[in-house]
Amino acid sequence: MLTEVTAVRYATPLREGGSLPGLVEAVDGRGMYASYVMKFTGAGQGRKTLVAEVICGQLARGLGLSVPSLAQMWLDPVLGLGEPDQQVQALLKSSGGLNLGMEYLSGALGFDALAHDVDPAEAGRVVWFDALINNVDRSWRNPNMLVVGGDLWLIDHGASMIWHHNWRTAETAAAKPYDASDHALAPFAPDVATAAAELAPLVTEELLAAAAADVPDVWLVDEPGFDTPDAVRRAYVAALLPRARTIHERIQLPEPQRKGADQ
């Protein structure tokens, strides 16, 4: 289960994200304060963005990839009353209740393919993982990766698992290839075959069920076609489990060309 924290101060909006996440100070049940990047239920993408963040983030962690820790974050809408920015104020007012917090990585640098090198093994693991969750938002235009002390961290998985926006087509959508031609790590000759051999056996029903179990019920209730939150959780497991076995065969990469290689 995710840690529960309560937002106590809204510091600043992070305008790089389309959903206008914010840097927030929060306190946990032991009275410990920490900074989080908060993603809001009142943002335009709605609660499914938060569901994707939880399932994909927890799955990545289970596979040994570096991702910020996640927390259930309670927000009192009164926190927005003093905000001078009307857009931020409206977002805070519409997001009362349970939202999602992500650990703030102090000192992190945005990934830049021209400034950072990634070995083919690590690139392969990230590309394979993104193919598994059908992440369409890790391109060279918007890498959604941070570098901390030389280590690569993955962030922002809200645009993943696009099939959960139309569950009737989930089986067909989950079986489609993954176009990685614009992936931020495509220039690093990602070794997806080795990554698949290493990671696919780790994607068990138990691992997927544990990741889905961390999604709060309130973000899953009233999902069309499902009677209970647990039924929705099982649908995520059913979509991802078979995809893990074969997705490496359907990853579409450009012709291998190591970054910096002679043209």
Rank of each mutant, 00 (worst) to 15 (best):
V215A: 06
S19N: 14
E205Y: 14
S181P: 07
E16A: 10
G107A: 06
L253Q: 11
V88Q: 14
K93A: 12
R9N: 12
G29S: 13
K39F: 01
L240M: 08
P84I: 00
H164N: 09
A210Y: 04
V27H: 05
S139R: 15
A113F: 09
T49S: 11
M32A: 14
T6S: 11
R9D: 07
A7S: 05
V27K: 09
G80R: 07
G46E: 04
G97M: 00
D230L: 12
V88E: 13
L146T: 02
W140Q: 14
A115L: 10
A196T: 08
G29I: 01
A175T: 06
S69C: 05
D76C: 02
W167E: 00
A131G: 15
K48W: 11
E25D: 12
H183E: 02
L185C: 02
G110F: 07
T6Y: 11
A60S: 06
T169N: 14
L199F: 08
V126S: 04
V67K: 11
L70A: 01
F129T: 01
M38E: 13
A34M: 06
T3P: 09
L65S: 01
D112H: 15
V148R: 12
V192Q: 04
L207G: 03
V88T: 11
A231P: 09
G124K: 03
M145F: 10
G18F: 12
L63R: 10
T3I: 04
R243G: 03
K93L: 08
V37I: 14
N135D: 07
G107T: 05
V203Y: 08
H157F: 00
T12S: 10
S66I: 07
A193V: 14
G97P: 07
L146V: 01
L199V: 03
T12M: 10
A7G: 10
G18Y: 14
W153H: 13
V8R: 15
R258A: 11
I162V: 13
P68E: 02
P77E: 00
P84A: 00
G149S: 04
G42Q: 03
K176S: 11
L253G: 03
A200M: 05
L240D: 03
R125P: 01
R9P: 02
E122F: 07
T49F: 10
P84W: 10
E205R: 15
L154D: 08
D230M: 03
A209R: 15
E83Q: 15
L207V: 11
Y104H: 15
A196C: 06
T169E: 09
Y10A: 05
W140C: 10
V218D: 06
R125Y: 02
V147Q: 06
P254T: 01
E25C: 01
H248Y: 10
P224M: 00
A173R: 15
V221R: 15
P242Y: 03
L207W: 13
L70P: 04
A170I: 07
A231C: 07
R243M: 02
G158I: 00
R234D: 09
V5R: 12
A71T: 11
V88W: 09
F40G: 01
S106E: 13
R47Y: 04
G101W: 02
A108N: 05
G18L: 06
L2Y: 12
A159C: 05
V136F: 08
C56V: 05
A52E: 02
Q263F: 13
G149L: 00
R15S: 14
P187H: 08
A175G: 15
V118Y: 07
A261W: 14
T194L: 05
R234W: 13
A90F: 08
